[in-house]
C-alpha cells in the first residue's frame, strides 16, 4: 500500500483509503469539510509522487501544475510526499464585524490581508483555528470592501456556534477559494432572471442581484426568499429599498412553500436564467420545477448548502 509523507510524519494507507482519511486516522491535523471533492477545503500539494487525475478535477490549471490535489478523493497508487501549502492558497483575514440579521442569522464581515478575487454568488471556505473549515456563500460584491457572509445558527454546529457565541471582532481566520459556478455573467442584459433561495440561501442571491444591477441588467429580476417562519426572512428592508430604486427588480419574501410561491407568480419560465441556493432538498426540487416550467437546463445555476462530513 502507498505511503503518504507529511512533514516528519508518514502513514501507510489502507486498501481503498483516501489520503485525507489516512492522515486523520493517524491524528495528523488536516483541514477538511465536505469530503466529496467539491468544497476544496482540504487541498494539499504533492511534491513527489503522481496523484490520480480525479483528485485534481475542478482545480485551476496553475494549481494542478504545481501538484495541488484534493486528498478527500485521492486514492493514490504510489507513494506521495506532501509539501507546504498554506501561503499561496489561503488568505489571512480578520473578523471586522458580527451583526445579527435575524434571530438565527448572523452577518459576518471579514477584512482580508491579501488579494482575493471572486464573483458575487461564489462561495469560500472559512477556516477557524487549525482544522475547522466550512463553506459559506459570499453575500457582498467585490466593490463593497469587506467580505460579507450570512451564517445560520445550527444546533451544536461547530463553526456557527463559534461565530455566534465565542468569536469577536478582530479574531484571525483564514479563507480559501472561491468556488462555485452560481454567478451572474454579463452579456444578455434583457434576459429575465429568477433568483430563489431559502434561509441563508439568500446570501449568494443578494450578491448576484446587486451584481446584475451594477452590471446594468435591464430585464426583469425576480427574487424569491423563503423561510419557514417570518423571523427567518432577513434583509427585508434593504431588499424593499432596492426594489423601490430599480423598477425591473421585484422582491417576494414568503413563508409559503417556495416552489408554489414561484409557480403562482411566474408559471412559465421559458427563456429565463435561474439561480437557486440553500437547503439541498429544496434546491433539488426547485431545479426540477424550474426546468419543467420551461427554463433550459444550462440556464439553471444552483448551489446546494450540503452539510459538511463529520
Amino acid at each position: 500500500m502507498p505511503t503518504v509523507t507529511f512533514g516528519n510524519r508518514s502513514c501507510e494507507l489502507a486498501q481503498g483509503e483516501t489520503v485525507l482519511d489516512g492522515l486523520l486516522r493517524h491524528d495528523i491535523p488536516a483541514v477538511h469539510a465536505c469530503k466529496t471533492g467539491s468544497c476544496g477545503s482540504c487541498m494539499l500539494r504533492a511534491v513527489s509522487g503522481q496523484v490520480p487525475e480525479v483528485s485534481q478535477i475542478g482545480l485551476k490549471d496553475a494549481w494542478r501544475a504545481r501538484g495541488y490535489f484534493l486528498p478527500c478523493v485521492c486514492r493514490p497508487t504510489e507513494d506521495i510526499e506532501i509539501g507546504e501549502t498554506a501561503g499561496d492558497i489561503r488568505v489571512a483575514a480578520r473578523i471586522a464585524s458580527l451583526v445579527p440579521l435575524s434571530g438565527n442569522v448572523l452577518q459576518v464581515r471579514l477584512v482580508l490581508d491579501g488579494p482575493f478575487e471572486f464573483r458575487a454568488g461564489q462561495y469560500l471556505t472559512l477556516i477557524a483555528g487549525d482544522t475547522l473549515a466550512r463553506s459559506y456563500s459570499i453575500a457582498s460584491i467585490p466593490s463593497d470592501g469587506p467580505l460579507e457572509l450570512h451564517v445560520r445558527r445550527m444546533p451544536n454546529g461547530q463553526m456557527s456556534t463559534w461565530l455566534f457565541d465565542d468569536a469577536h471582532e478582530g479574531d484571525a481566520v483564514r479563507i480559501q477559494g472561491p468556488s462555485g459556478e452560481c454567478f451572474y455573467v454579463p452579456g444578455r442584459p434583457d434576459q429575465p432572471l429568477l433568483l430563489v433561495g431559502t434561509g441563508t440561501g439568500l446570501a449568494p442571491l443578494y450578491g448576484i442581484v446587486r451584481d446584475a444591477l451594477a452590471c446594468g441588467h435591464r430585464g426583469p429580476i425576480h427574487l424569491f426568499h423563503g423561510a419557514l417562519r417570518p423571523e427567518g426572512l432577513y434583509l427585508v428592508d434593504e431588499l424593499n429599498a432596492l426594489a423601490a430604486a430599480h423598477s425591473n427588480f421585484t422582491y417576494t419574501p414568503t413563508t409559503d412553500p417556495i416552489e408554489r410561491a414561484v409557480a403562482g407568480s411566474i408559471p412559465k419560465l421559458d427563456g429565463y436564467r435561474a439561480f437557486v441556493c440553500g437547503d439541498p432538498a429544496v434546491v433539488q426540487l426547485l431545479k426540477r420545477k424550474i426546468f419543467l416550467a420551461g427554463a433550459a437546463m444550462r440556464e439553471i445555476h444552483a448551489d446546494a448548502f450540503l452539510p459538511s462530513a463529520a
Binding site: Q284, F291, L292, M297
Partner: peptide
C-alpha cells in the same frame, strides 16, 4: 436533451424513477 427529459419528468408513470437522481 432538454425536450426529452422534460417529457420524461412530466410523465407520472415513469417520473418517480428519477425522483432521487440529481438533475445535472
Amino acid at each position: 436533451v432538454d425536450a426529452f427529459y422534460r417529457k420524461v419528468l412530466s410523465d407520472d408513470t415513469v417520473a418517480h424513477f428519477f425522483d432521487d437522481v440529481d438533475m445535472d
